[in-house]
Design a protein around this nucleic acid. Sequence first.
DNA 1: CTGTTAGCGCTTTCAT
DNA 2: ATGAAAGCGCTAACAG
Lengths: 339, 339
Amino acid sequence: MVTIKDVAKASGVSPSTVSRVIADNPRITEDTKKKVRKAMKRLGYHPNISARNLVAKSTKAIGVIMPSSADKALQNPFFPEILRGIGSVIHDVQYSMSLSTGETEEEIFREVQRMVYGSYVDGVILLYSRVNDRVTNFLRENEFPFVIVGKPYDHETEITHVDNDNFRAGKEITEHLIAQGHKRIAFIGGSRELIVTMDREAGYEAALQGAGLENCDGYKIHTEFLKSGGREAVEYLLSLETRPTGLVVSDDLISLGILARLEEAGIHVPHDVSLVSFNNVYLSEITRPALTTVDIQIYELGAQSAKVLIEKTKNRNEPAKRIIIPYHIINRDSVNDLR
Amino acid sequence: MVTIKDVAKASGVSPSTVSRVIADNPRITEDTKKKVRKAMKRLGYHPNISARNLVAKSTKAIGVIMPSSADKALQNPFFPEILRGIGSVIHDVQYSMSLSTGETEEEIFREVQRMVYGSYVDGVILLYSRVNDRVTNFLRENEFPFVIVGKPYDHETEITHVDNDNFRAGKEITEHLIAQGHKRIAFIGGSRELIVTMDREAGYEAALQGAGLENCDGYKIHTEFLKSGGREAVEYLLSLETRPTGLVVSDDLISLGILARLEEAGIHVPHDVSLVSFNNVYLSEITRPALTTVDIQIYELGAQSAKVLIEKTKNRNEPAKRIIIPYHIINRDSVNDLR
DNA sequence: CTGTTAGCGCTTTCAT
DNA sequence: ATGAAAGCGCTAACAG
């Protein structure tokens, strides 16, 4: 391995000068810079990152934590997309990103511990937000720079987070259904532990209430995210005396399953029942019918979270921020006008 | 930050002893170990990874390189799933994984350069394989440990790779269609630059040939992966004088689009046309009809590649290996028996 | 503008 | 079985 010393020797300067050339320090002559750079190129010099990290006490790396989850849920295209958003800004500032590898909550927790205590990363992005999360608490207690994509369960004002207004989105998309003449509207969501589910559901409820519609528990279904592709949820729905005419589904991937199960049962979307959902992943535009869904701008969610985190790592007493990414309702073909 | 020195002082031993305790060196008394460990716990000591990396000349990190690709293609659930596989073994050996963030080929190339030259990672996993790939060549020339998920374009015997037998899989799934009485079978694939497309297509061709069926170019369509959800491909298909009765599609996500476009055109799967595809991502079991597809065991592909890479980083002159992950045809509902 | 020196936190001979 | 000392490659005062 060729080090800074080799370059120094080869170009007849001191190691510190070489270091300064690397940092493009203005106090170095263009001449020496040129000379040193030539030597670097000739010898094939590249700075050793570990050495630099050691003295800089910063790794220019951020940790990205995926939710604990045996299997399927992670196949949600939400994740590659948000990673892409994070990656884009990470890339621009020449940082790197380290992805969590744990499957269980416990594994992930220990991983985050290693990241933090080992000074392995300068900051952490949490790609989920759930009730009473150990990782969140740990990060908070250690005052380690982190940001949540989503809304924190508590200490909302102290934790920097990037989120959509999921309450309003839930409300608005439900109102959209109501405006089309729907009166019996059900909600199908993922785990109740997830804040995002809670928020969207609360929005749904508010819309019903606002329209003076009945708000019965029988119309709120929580499926263990991808459980059998929504079969149970649909079976339950079909067993109902008075079936809903509209469905608010908290995630496009769930919608896909629901859609298929519904059609299987001979119920056509949007003819027999209308469906709206959330996220606007690529999927939702290629299904049939294409989904009317809330575009939450996943990419932007990722990009902004990375941006604000990096600011935070650079200036540790940056105040906690809440960043709300606007959403847009994308009208496609899964909603029927009942009027 | 509490360092090894602090622990040493607190427990009345020398720094080197503490270091040995960390490494669980057998030449240290159980007594001193206990003593030192207690001090570590009390002070909240955690080893600094950068410092360790610097002297160990190893980072226990591996780089995972995603294909260059503006947008959609990365939304393929293939990626989270393979990341999960890689993650599982990475996790077990306490390594970490660094994900590429570049979008263009050029960006990715420079990123890999940084990873390699900066000793940022001990090895690299390439999640794609394409014709004349710059990154592959770079890694090869530098004799840096890496493995390809897929089949290398050239130097096949010198490059460790983890792959399915895509040729056979393509052949077998096509033969499956043939066995059901299909005679006019088209192939719809992603980019021709991707080795995986080439292999599956070659298998498809071999099956036709083996059955003495016509093998015309008009039946081979290459769509820019996700272009408009396969609309063009389907339109083209419909414009044909004699339409195929069977479709071999190189990726589940493409299939999903094709499926929808077909139904839009009033062509029912499998009644009017049968469709088979590849990957068996979660999607393929929740669509309607559920897809008959080749389960390529994505998770295993990831896990094995990580495993073999880690071996390689530990023993740099481990010989190049080829690891073939078995595939299974999953029969679901997208194929019609014509006999 | 450049060189000298010290030191980041850890591991590893080499002594003892 | 343990300690002292050197050094991994780099940066950053401090001099000059």
